[in-house]
Design a protein around this nucleic acid. Structure first.
Lengths: 246, 246
DNA sequence: GTTATTTGTTTCACCAGATGAAACGTCGTT
DNA sequence: AACGACGTTTCATCTGGTGAAACAAATAAC
């Protein structure tokens, strides 16, 4: 099971309301109620909270809400010139819009991978993709992409990690890495989580360094092996476009 | 008593954590705990919430937190070219830093004034200033500035408003407006809230229209009448600088 | 080396804050 | 006038948010 950090529901809901404005810059309260599927009174209270802190404002004439100055103020404190999560977002969205499956971006951190960016499918049944989620490099398509393309003895470290899962064959893992280097993509089907499958490719910088793993994932009912292989050229193309940015 | 909207504490706390990054773009968890004065575990959970939604990220090496790509994404959906709350913020901050009292910006909405922007004093005892707060135009320094400089029969409407407070003399109000037009500032001392005082001037656009009322407010122990009058030239100068922007 | 300190992570008992249904208020339409 | 849509307020309910404390890990001090 994907690592599930303890979060605070009320705070999450407030943030979800902010995210409503990505799709439409001005919203009536009714629209936010529909988008979030929360009760009117909950939305009303959360909007009041957001307004009090300057994160949304309400237009006096139209009475619609829009994002407030605080967002702009905070944005001025971001160093975004080199953040892949920011640079790659448009291309990820384009890919998601083209295929309508969840697109994620993982980077390596020690012996783990971290999801640093995600755009979710808009279908009712979708792969949910919490940012900041961490997973060991022993399982999953993107783990193998990361290990396959990382220079140095990362593979040795992963294989000798005391946390290596007991049900996974090290020799098979090594063989899969070799296949990935040949075919340039990795596939996983229910390898880590029942009912889900994923296909992953590497994003390289112009200098040839591995930047991140790009992953397309969804329910296995929609993404069988054949379908995922058909998606690979599009994934590779998107990865190349992203690589040009860094 | 200033209108107090029902807010959601947990959501407020999450937003307050975001605001910590205005002062410093990279923060350890300990620093956020100190700034917010919340318990470690609460901060930890709220940071996890913010990270899951992409509003903060954690650097793998330094393990410090900073703002995430979502802020940038949302900022791209703001129309900020003409928002006084955004345009005037730097000058308000400069004034606050110079005097270390709370600076607020009010605009008129019907027979009310609305606080659309505020930067608070950093002293332990300060005027708190929730954005979005609404007050009738019958009381307070900025109300009188707004009424004094609004063309048309706003004064007539305010005086005949059924909600006019029973303890306030209409003739005195009219007289005060005339003084304000002469001296170009308004002062209030415990007029609306015990222990607080305020001095206000008008911000006019280059075309001469009233844009907003600029207010400096704080505890009456620090801001007596004499002190407020001494602040007026600085307030007027700041208002002129702001007026040049619109 | 051991011990102390600091920082971050997890646990869990407690209760008040978050919730949503429903009532209410306002405005526009018929 | 009645009705519907939208936003605002009320209030009973209960679970989710909380913080103290334990725990874990890393670093500093001795």
């Amino acid at each position: 099971m994907e690592e599930k950090k303890t979060t605070t529901r009320a705070a999450e809901r407030a943030l979800d309301i902010l995210l409503c404005f990505v799709g439409k810059p001005e919203l009536a309260m009714r629209e936010i109620v529909e988008k979030t599927e929360l009760s009117k009174s909950t939305v009303f209270r959360l909007l009041a909270t957001l307004e009090t802190k300057g994160f949304v404002k309400r237009d006096a004439d139209t009475e619609k809400y829009s994002l407030g100055f605080r967002i702009w103020e905070l944005a001025n404190h971001i160093n975004r010139s080199d953040d892949p999560a920011i640079l790659f977002l448009p291309e990820m969205e384009r890919l998601r819009d083209e295929i309508d499956e969840t697109v994620s971006l993982y980077v390596r951190d020690g012996l783990e991978r971290v999801r640093i960016q995600a755009v979710e499918s808009q279908q009712a049944i979708r792969r949910v993709a919490p940012i900041g989620a961490r997973l060991p490099l022993s399982v999953g398509a993107s783990s193998k992409v990361i290990v396959a393309y990382t220079e140095g003895d990362l593979l040795g470290k992963v294989l000798s990690d005391p946390m290596w899962p007991s049900g996974i064959d090290r020799d098979l893992y090594i063989k899969q890495l070799q296949e990935i280097r040949t075919q340039e993509y990795a596939i996983s089907m229910e390898e880590r989580e029942a009912g889900t499958s994923a296909v992953s490719v590497a994003i390289h910088s112009r200098a040839g360094n591995l930047i991140a793993a790009l992953v397309l994932s969804g329910p296995i009912s929609r993404m069988n092996e054949e379908q995922m292989i058909q998606y690979v050229p599009r994934l590779v193309k998107a990865a190349e476009e992203m690589g040009k940015l860094v």
